[in-house]
Nucleic acid binder design. Structure first.
Lengths: 191, 191, 191, 191
DNA sequence: GATGAATGAGCCTTCATTCAT
DNA sequence: AATGAATGAAGGCTCATTCAT
């Protein structure tokens, strides 16, 4: 193995895929076009990803990791639940507003049939600390009684996504959406 | 006139499309398979829908109409806002839980590139009364001050969808999810 | 047989076919479009012509007949060979310039594979008198010795067609082309 | 570089296309059959020619070039007009008689709707020297006064084609047709 | 490892023709 | 006879993947 696989090329492929999947959709974006935009030969793509589905799964994991990083960096572990939740909320909204293509691809991926169970699991792995925070809050009896945990985290995601959608379509009200959204979530969920 | 176009055949095609799109995805479902499952010849599909994209757009409008019907039938126009919202909430959750395929297709459609603007408009048309209800509530100052309207309706949808997801994956807790979900929404949004 | 086949409809179909074949070509013009432009139902076309090839063959015969009529009407049977040839020449050029669509279709038909031998024979039948004129001229020793008859009539057609082509692309020189063309033919062919 | 595109395959495809277009017509000859007869996979045809129309246009240019080569090789540039014209005449007749398939395809191409303007221009480019010869003859006042130039070259082609047609259908009279044809042309056109 | 030509299965759509009304 | 919906074979083209170079 004279030349080792290049991380640059791998990233170029993932970037090109993100762009094309966002613009044309998962199936309408040909691997040949992805290669071209990545600046590699058609065949090269398949030395980095065995199949197109492989590429898609890898991209999913990559984006999820990126999102988790964005959410969890500088996480104020020592602060109270509200502060920590607010941190996560703000970071998520920022990432989503700043990365519309990644978000669009993620939306397509989540409803597609190509994600393997492994990928789904791998995708949620980086969010363990986030889940832990929710459990912690439950134990502290911060949330309303008998709100199912899974409903709380699912709702958080749902409301963040709604907030990002609005922010993207009307950026001038970004701050308003972010604050109102969180307020809605918080008062919906706490006693 | 010769044989008139048959509503039965049209419906059979839409049904088969729903099934296949849900199972395999929009692009992975061949029109030939749709025809076969609908019990018509391959060419017949194209006398009812000029192109596959046409079929997809028609299906979108049909499902949205069905959903609106489900939500708005027996709508208690005279009752107070909370009751009316709760009606809509319950009907939406029921429809979503009972029609997982339609819902899956809808999710794919919403992130796909094939919907025309006309279809999107036609799809939201049946929900005018729902929008009116929200405006009515605003005027009655039922919601928290300075919550943007668009955030309220968007959040409602987001939370219903979250609720349905959980219901589908754990039907035994259906009632709990439905009640908790609505409670979250209501307390998040009202003063 | 309540209603008899209508000559009007038959003609409407032949006319529409001429137009469409000229504009799009023999195979690119669908029978459905021909029917539509003829103002009849798709199926009706097939009660007048058993197959598309049938229609094409009929059209060939019709156009050839039309051309022969144009050439031979008012034919000056009693005049000398040159006058008679000039008559035919002028009539051919006029017909071709005035009927570009028919001419275009004829050109396509002659190189296509759909004409039956019967049609080709039927197509040349109306030109017997024209052939007779040539033979007559031969007997009168008007042409150069040992010019093959078949070359003479073939050349006449070839030169007329060349003349019409030029006339169509530059109508202002119509008279010039017609006179020069005939002069070329006549001096090429006579002693 | 990986496998380079093979001129052999390209030629095999053009040859197969010539054969099939001549036998069945431009539209009746499927690309799949062309590929098969060329000994390549169906998809391979499209790496050499982007579309079927592309292939057709390329074939047109190739045949025209071949014809020009045949006509102009050994062209006696220094000899008088009659000799040069006779050279071109003989070569054209020989090429046409020896290449009936190419000629048939050319005839179909010229009346078809698929040729681009670029192809038509490219097709006449190799005949510039031939056009120059005609202009030369005009300047030398070899032709009859007031015969339009365009009529002269068009007639030459028309008469050659007529001559070839007869030669093909009756090869035993080949020499007679060739001589008589040229004589007709020459005496038709000169003073 | 990198390249891009080669492959061939598969898909959407067209269209001549049939046939129920 | 007239209609136009129904049919299904056929065709051009795409594209993920392989493999010779």
């Amino acid at each position: 193995m004279a030349r080792p696989k290049s991380a640059d090329k791998q990233n170029a492929i993932l970037d090109a895929a993100t762009r094309l999947f966002a613009e044309r959709g998962l199936t309408a974006a040909p691997t040949s076009e992805i290669s071209k935009q990545a600046g590699v030969a058609e065949g090269t793509l398949f030395t980095y990803f065995k199949t197109k589905d492989d590429l898609i799964n890898a991209l999913y994991r990559e984006i999820k990791l990126e999102l988790a990083d964005a959410m969890m960096s500088d996480f104020p572990r020592k602060k109270n639940v509200r502060t920590r939740l607010r941190h996560v909320w703000d970071r998520y909204v920022s990432w989503g507003s700043a990365n519309p293509k990644q978000r669009k691809v993620l939306a397509q991926l989540q409803v597609s049939e190509v994600l393997t169970k492994e990928s789904r699991d791998a995708g949620s792995a980086p969010f363990v600390e986030f889940q832990a925070m929710i459990r912690d809050a439950i134990e502290q009896r911060i949330f309303q009684n008998d709100l199912p945990v899974e409903l709380i985290s699912k709702s958080l995601t749902a409301l963040v996504e709604a907030t990002i959608d609005l922010t993207v379509s009307n950026p001038s009200k970004a701050k308003n959406y972010r604050d109102s959204g969180f307020q809605m979530f918080w008062s919906g969920v706490t006693k």
